[in-house]
């Protein structure tokens, strides 16, 4: 549905924005960034896809869970539980737009963790979730 992405690489190139000055601009880079942040709290931290998968399915407020909108297999399109609007796949392998912008990823973690778990997610949890999502293949 979003038409923008096709033009984004060209635009970025023209504007000279490609250098990664803003930090993590890829899912793998973002995972590394969350891991570094988590290791500041717990030096032994290593992102775990298994923990991420469990969190992805964990029920929170009103029985909501990440998989509720993003489906149990996040390489396919989901839909918003309330509005019914289709949601593009969440796994980067199925949708390269996902997690390629750190600020946008943070915005959605902030909103959605509050909606589902009624609290912010930690850097460790975000790393785990991302490790899980990066493992998913269409």
């Amino acid at each position: 549905m979003p038409k923008l992405p096709r033009q984004t690489p060209l635009l970025a190139l023209l504007l000279g924005l490609l250098p990664l000055h803003a930090g993590a601009q890829s899912a793998a880079g973002l995972l590394e960034r969350y891991s570094e942040e988590a290791r500041r709290e717990a030096p032994a931290y290593a992102a775990s896809a298994a923990r991420g998968e469990a969190l992805f399915h964990q029920r929170g407020k009103d029985d909501w869970r990440c998989a509720g909108c993003h489906t149990d297999k996040p390489v396919v399109a989901g839909r918003h539980l309330v509005t019914g609007k289709p949601i593009a796949p969440l796994a980067p392998a199925a949708n390269p737009e996902r997690f390629n912008d750190a600020a946008r990823a943070e915005k959605w973690f902030r909103r959605n963790c509050k909606d589902v778990f009624e609290r912010p997610c930690s850097a460790a949890e975000k790393g785990d979730l991302l490790a899980y999502l990066l493992e998913q293949r269409p």
Partner: peptide, 10 residues
């Protein structure tokens, strides 16, 4: 396919 009136695009 619709589910909710807010799903305009349906």
């Amino acid at each position: 396919a619709v589910g909710n009136p807010a799903n305009c695009g349906a």
